[in-house]
């Protein structure tokens, strides 16, 4: 054969140009930002690393975290779902109404809660099917479809609550409480659920045909189509998965305060999307990593936590502090891309 040395680069643009250090930074950027944030928090307040505070932060992260895992798949395949926050509020509202309606007939018990949960999950899946079909069959931009359903879900919950707040039956609340406040081996239940979802999500993204197909579609839809991938079916599935995960998050949210109102889940969609991007998934699709998203979510929660634990930043500057950290976290990993 013509060339004796197979190590010679095949193209005029050799890929090994970026030094190894920067490559690692791209990979570990979010982790580095997280570590910096933890160091900052620990130096500002002695209670920051207390088990109770860590449990609080992780448990709170679990709602947007679980939703963001779903968003990772949607975004990786080149889509977007803006409706998740409203959907969570709507699902929470319906779950509360269903449970409250069943109590007089069946009494307070795990059965009633289980039915409520099942209704939430089914409804979440259906909401995802709705979004997905409008996007794949209706050929409407994901941004527009989910912007529309975002408004619809938000209005529906306002309507169901008659403009006020839907509150869970007080006795059911006692039975349901452990789903948020309970612990297993000292670890809060929502944290365990979040971890499970994240591990399964990472596995699905990295090691299943579904995950591969998502990134292939996000990377180049034509290549995916020519590679015998059912593009529409995979797309639809990402939205259904997103809907189900929103429902899972809702199952944990309802027992926290036992209520749903039109303020429930406001801006969760942006938090979820921000977490996904901070974690290193590309917004235009094609590459996603669930573990990065998990770190992104924890980073966002830690920012709030640190602000509440200290008086260093004037409360009027909360938003600026958040903005700086978010941009820094992304900058850390993008330095490589900027040079290539």
């Amino acid at each position: 054969m013509p060339r004796a040395d197979p190590s010679l680069p095949a193209a005029a643009n050799p890929p090994g140009r970026g030094p190894k250090l920067r490559l690692n930074l791209h990979l570990l950027g979010p982790l580095l930002a997280l570590i910096l944030l933890v160091v900052l928090g620990a130096s500002l307040n002695g209670n920051f690393l207390s088990p109770a505070n860590i449990a609080n932060v992780l448990a709170r992260s679990s709602f947007t975290g679980i939703i963001a895992v779903g968003a990772t798949f949607v975004i990786t395949s080149g889509g977007l779902d803006l409706s998740v926050g409203s959907m969570a509020a709507f699902l929470a509202g319906v779950m509360i109404m269903v449970i409250n309606a069943l109590v007089p007939q069946f009494g307070v018990g795990f059965g009633v809660i289980a039915i409520g949960m099942a209704v939430g999950l089914v409804l979440g899946a259906l909401a995802g099917v709705g979004n997905g079909l409008l996007i794949t069959r209706g050929r409407i931009e994901a941004f527009i479809v989910t912007l529309g359903t975002m408004g619809i879900f938000r209005s529906l919950v306002t309507f169901l609550a008659n403009g006020g707040t839907l509150s869970l039956n007080f006795d059911v609340m006692d039975a349901y409480r452990p789903a948020y406040y309970g612990t297993v081996a000292g670890i809060p239940v929502p944290v365990i659920v979040f971890a499970l979802v994240a591990i399964l999500g990472e596995l699905a993204m990295r090691r299943t045909p579904f995950g591969r197909h998502c990134s292939a579609i996000g990377s180049n839809e034509q290549v995916a189509r020519y590679s015998a991938i059912h593009v529409d079916r995979v797309r639809l599935l990402t939205y259904v998965l997103q809907g189900v995960l929103v429902a899972v998050a809702t199952l944990l949210y309802v027992p926290r305060l036992g209520s749903a109102s039109s303020t429930t889940g406001v801006l969760w969609e942006l938090e979820a999307i921000a977490a996904v991007i901070i974690g290193g998934t590309t917004l235009r699709g094609g590459y996603g990593r669930v573990w990065g998203t998990v770190i992104g979510v924890v980073i966002l929660s830690l920012i709030d936590n640190i602000l509440n634990l200290t008086n260093v930043v004037s409360p009027y500057l909360n938003g600026a502090f958040q903005g700086v950290i978010i941009i820094l976290a992304v900058l850390l990993q993008r330095s490589r891309r900027a040079t290539s």
């Binding site: 609550a161 403009g163 006020g164 039109s262 303020t263």
Partner: peptide, 8 residues
Amino acid sequence: ADHGWTGG
């Protein structure tokens, strides 16, 4: 009605 009070 974006929160309880405006709901009222």
